[in-house]
Computed example of a mutant assay.
Amino acid sequence: MLPAALPAFRPFLLTLALAFSPVLLAQTSDASKEASTELQLSADGSEVQDLRARLVWPRCVHGMVWRNERCQGTPQRLNYSQAQKLAQSLHREDGLGWRLPRTNELRRLQQRTAAPTEQAAALFAQTPGDWHWTGTAAINSRAINRYSYEATTPARNSLPAPQAWAVDWASGQASGEMGRGNVLLVRLVRPLPATKLPPATP
């Protein structure tokens, strides 16, 4: 008897589905709208304002410029000291607070660009898939026995080089064992001005 009774329930099930579909569509629309308003372009299209993280990112890595709706030029790779000096120089020039991003900030941005539903993928589409410096410092403090024969050989006759954190844009991997003498890509970041902050929710 159960199979014979199923057709009688079909109109009821259809009515129930239609009743809830506007709610589901509204929720989906609200989520999409929220995602689309978290990242906003500057007037000239060269920067992206992240309203959630309250940060401003240039769309191009250092060495490239935004022109004719795309990043043009050649990425300039710097060692860690040069990257820090670049941030300090720009900060002195315009007072906008440019700095190297923290590891978690850059990883979060990379992860958002990797998600197929995120608009960040289009906003940063021309980012080279390579290692980027971050401002998170780390020092290799492994102990060395100076009186060991091995420690006096040419290959080991020096303290470990200072290291810092970097993020691989292709994979999102972060490493705190990047020697500061390596030359990597640089994308600076600055705080979102208070006048651009969204109103606080009650």
Rank of each mutant, 00 (worst) to 15 (best):
A4Q: 13
A4Y: 10
A5Q: 15
L6Y: 09
A8H: 10
P11W: 07
F12G: 15
F12K: 12
L13N: 10
L14S: 07
A17S: 11
A17Y: 09
L18Y: 11
L18K: 12
S21M: 14
P22C: 03
A26W: 10
Q27W: 12
Q27N: 09
S29W: 13
A31V: 07
S32L: 13
E34M: 09
E34G: 06
T37P: 07
Q40N: 08
Q40I: 09
L41Q: 09
S42L: 01
D44W: 04
V48A: 05
A53Q: 14
R54P: 06
L55T: 00
W57T: 00
W57N: 01
P58H: 05
R59N: 04
C60W: 00
C60K: 01
C60L: 00
V61E: 15
H62D: 04
G63M: 00
M64R: 14
V65Y: 11
R67C: 01
N68Q: 15
E69R: 10
R70H: 14
R70E: 14
G73L: 05
Q76Y: 04
Y80A: 05
S81P: 04
S81V: 12
S81R: 13
A83N: 03
Q84G: 03
Q84A: 02
L86T: 08
A87F: 02
A87H: 03
S89Q: 15
D94W: 11
G95N: 07
G95V: 03
G97I: 04
R99G: 00
R99T: 00
R99I: 02
L100V: 03
L100S: 03
L100E: 00
R102F: 04
R102V: 01
R102C: 00
R102W: 06
N104Q: 13
R107Q: 15
R107T: 14
R108T: 15
T113S: 15
T113W: 10
A115L: 14
A115R: 14
P116K: 01
T117D: 13
T117V: 04
A121M: 04
A121Y: 05
L123P: 01
F124W: 12
F124C: 03
A125C: 03
A125D: 13
T127S: 12
P128C: 04
G129C: 07
H132R: 08
H132M: 13
T134Q: 00
A138R: 14
R142V: 13
R142C: 06
A143Y: 15
N145K: 11
R146F: 10
S148Q: 07
S148N: 07
Y149M: 10
T152W: 10
P154M: 08
A155G: 05
S158D: 08
L159Y: 10
A161G: 06
Q163A: 13
Q163N: 09
A164P: 06
W165E: 02
A166E: 10
A166M: 08
A166R: 02
V167W: 05
D168S: 11
D168N: 15
D168T: 07
D168A: 08
S171M: 11
Q173H: 12
Q173D: 11
Q173G: 07
Q173A: 14
S175K: 07
E177K: 11
E177L: 13
M178Q: 14
M178I: 15
R180W: 02
R180T: 14
G181A: 07
V183R: 14
L184R: 02
L184V: 06
L185A: 06
V186P: 03
R187K: 09
R190H: 05
P193I: 03
T195W: 11
P198D: 04
